[in-house]
Design a protein around this nucleic acid. Sequence first.
DNA 1: CTACCGTGAATGTCAGACATTTAATTGTAA
DNA 2: TTACAATTAAATGTCTGACATTCACGGTAG
Lengths: 248, 248
Amino acid sequence: MKSSTARASSSDLSAQIAKAIRDAIVSRELDVNQRLPSEAELADQFQVSRPTVREALKRLAAQSLIRTQRGASGGAFVNRLSFEEAYPQQITTSTLLLSMNAVSFDVACEARYALERACAPLAAQRRTPDQLATMRAEILRQGAPGLSDEAFCASDVAFHRALVDGAGNPVLSYQLAGAVEAMQPLMNMITFTARSREAIVALHTEIADALEARDAAATDSALVKLEAYTRELADTVANARNKSKREQ
Amino acid sequence: MKSSTARASSSDLSAQIAKAIRDAIVSRELDVNQRLPSEAELADQFQVSRPTVREALKRLAAQSLIRTQRGASGGAFVNRLSFEEAYPQQITTSTLLLSMNAVSFDVACEARYALERACAPLAAQRRTPDQLATMRAEILRQGAPGLSDEAFCASDVAFHRALVDGAGNPVLSYQLAGAVEAMQPLMNMITFTARSREAIVALHTEIADALEARDAAATDSALVKLEAYTRELADTVANARNKSKREQ
DNA sequence: CTACCGTGAATGTCAGACATTTAATTGTAA
DNA sequence: TTACAATTAAATGTCTGACATTCACGGTAG
């Protein structure tokens, strides 16, 4: 963690300091749980004031790279980034990416189901009874009358996350969390009629059955059908919207 | 973007303020490119001092949710989060997750190839001549003598990213960037002999050929072989290490 | 009409101070 | 000697006020 030399570049000292420390963390110069120098010491080292150092530390804290403790023997510590911590960030980022970049429903849907199908064979091998139970419970909820569209979508997400978790690979679960959850706002634009809900529940049941039977091929084919049906539903909504637009 | 009411909870005002603004951005209360109130105004609204507001803003800037401009008519603006900006963050986070959580080579490898195989059928349909050319160029580089292991790995990553990009789905490219790039440090632990490089180049060629022929099945089977071979290599390394450990 | 120069508003930075939290130390009594 | 309570010190959290820097805007001179 060099310091005090070679500044220059453009302005924004706090960004430069954050980068220096971040590089030190990523390159393992600083180990997990190691304590950084105190804010005052860092200010000395980097030849800046404490507020500037603090801004840099907050940047790192926002990325969960460090955590801070107050009090004696407190300070900033290199954080062990856990999957649990990374999930919400991944989901927030993915959701914003989709909503801010005019990603079409089709593109997002394609990505999501391509990834889910990648999990299917592994899930067919490894799904636990717990995960199956979660899926069955969500299916049950989805069939309940009087469920709002939002609640239906939320249950849908929970179902699919159970499927992904069934692959028993935390790396996959992490990557997929973003793809699956980020779809929810897009799905919320669809109005689910009683008939379409029934069709989705049937396909979900097909998936759960296939996983219970450890049948990878059947799981895959059910996912393909579900993807086709989802896109069909979205198309219907889009067409209806275009039509009403033309009639204006 | 409510303020000044209902604080309490635990300490760390800057985190609370960051959360409030983040929520406003995520929920679309604040539009893209919309200007936030000035730091002084925010300090008034939230009843805190300007440094505290600044720390909150730096947190958001670290997540690329806002950008700031100096000078007259400057300020903090809601940022349009682009895929280009999100890539490096995703890669950094994924890399740290793998290196800090003792994710085994097998688990990471499984995830990576499962995801890549999800891209294969789409890439077989859509790969552009450009992407094919990139893959061929990287294959050529990988065959060059005197290439360091690191450079070989870097080229491997470039090859696989071209494959993923071939699917023509930015959402997939984004999600996979993390999985593919994060593997590089793990791959770097392997020493690639001339023979193993030859085998990998052959499989890469098989993949490129299959994509050129738009043959999804052949692409998939080549990827399966490549995964098997990669894991075999890693196993050899691991066994050699265990052996030398026992002999100590 | 154009080029130049204030002016003001905003962020970036600094210095110093005080508040709060918390572990470690010290002091005291059983 | 041990257990417990009070003190201390170090660190982060926060505030105030000031100054530096940047940059759009408008007015003025040529």
